[in-house]
Write a protein that binds this DNA or RNA. Structure first.
Lengths: 166, 166
DNA sequence: GAGCGATTGATGATGATTTCTCATAAAATG
DNA sequence: CATTTTATGAGAAATCATCATCAATCGCTC
């Protein structure tokens, strides 16, 4: 059974890792340093990471790891229910640790992603659902797109992602 | 205070067309049958359209129109503020008429899609954005997934408050 | 350890969207 | 109309994330 929602519920990384270990056992997968490193980094970050970001982190300790392995491992994580793929509109898939869901605020200029949670909004969602024929909300997706302070201030200036574009 | 019901705001297409005409004048663009047809179809459509969908509609009357022209014209529409590009994660850009945005409530069982709009939620979004470093919200995406009354079954009693979050 | 099958990484393929090219055609201007 | 400017369309080309390939490597079992 899924635990009821508590606002501050730190994810038990060890528990998730356990699930991974079981999955590996069940599927008779080999344990490799790369896979372990990728899973480790992914579970630790607990933040929506793109393939690139994850690869970058992994390469700090395992510089030889390639894209393919990250893709493959992330697929495994999705398959065993530890990761969820999300799209934020920049064409790059991002992966979220199960149970880590928040709502998001995305800067379309620099790619900054903030998380938020607001009980008032959640309450209003319920109200709306009730109003519209007794809908029962199971999950939701709520994303605000716009410009972060930096992106607004310096028009085209100091946004990391802008700078990276040619 | 809660809005008594979702206000359905019909867009004044003529007004939007006016904006387009002005833009054409200002930028000294030529008036061509293709452009007019594309703009016409775009403004007429109620929902977000992909390039393909738009092209398909336009071709009903102007079969020779090509992709390039649709892309080019849509760019103009974005430039003059009549269209907004949105990404729904399927890799295909969709374009929304300014002012046409609504949120969705989706029944994962029967596929029913309801639209809603709530000023209070929008206000809260602004509040959150302000709280998180002066973010400027340009657009948002808000989707509630769950079960409509029918899908829940009549007996279950309509208390959408428990058994929430996944 | 030896052997065998699973895994890796570099890179090329893939599939899809978007942009570019350029000869042709159509609009504006007078 | 004739000229000049701009727009079009068909396809080629550029992009880009993701996936497949395959020889080399590594993990696991015996």
């Amino acid at each position: 059974m899924v635990a009821p929602r508590d606002d501050f519920r730190p994810i038990d990384t060890a528990q998730l890792k356990e699930r991974w270990v079981e999955y590996v056992k069940e599927k008779k997968l080999n344990t490799t340093a790369q896979r372990e490193a990728i899973v480790e980094q992914f579970l630790r970050a607990a933040d929506h990471m793109s393939i690139d970001e994850l690869l970058a982190r992994v390469r700090k300790r395992h510089p030889r790891v390639g894209y393919a392995t990250v893709y493959r491992t992330l697929k495994l994580l999705v398959d065993c229910g530890l990761a969820v793929e999300r799209q934020f509109g920049d064409g790059q898939a991002r992966y979220e640790v199960v149970g880590e869901h928040h709502d998001h605020l995305i800067c379309t200029s620099c790619g900054l992603i903030l998380e938020f949670e607001d009980d008032e909004i959640e309450a209003l969602q319920e109200k709306i659902a009730a109003r519209l024929g007794g809908f029962k909300v199971l999950r939701h997706r709520h994303e605000l797109y716009g410009l972060c302070a930096k992106a607004q201030g310096v028009a085209g200036g100091s946004c990391p992602r802008d700078a990276m574009r040619k």
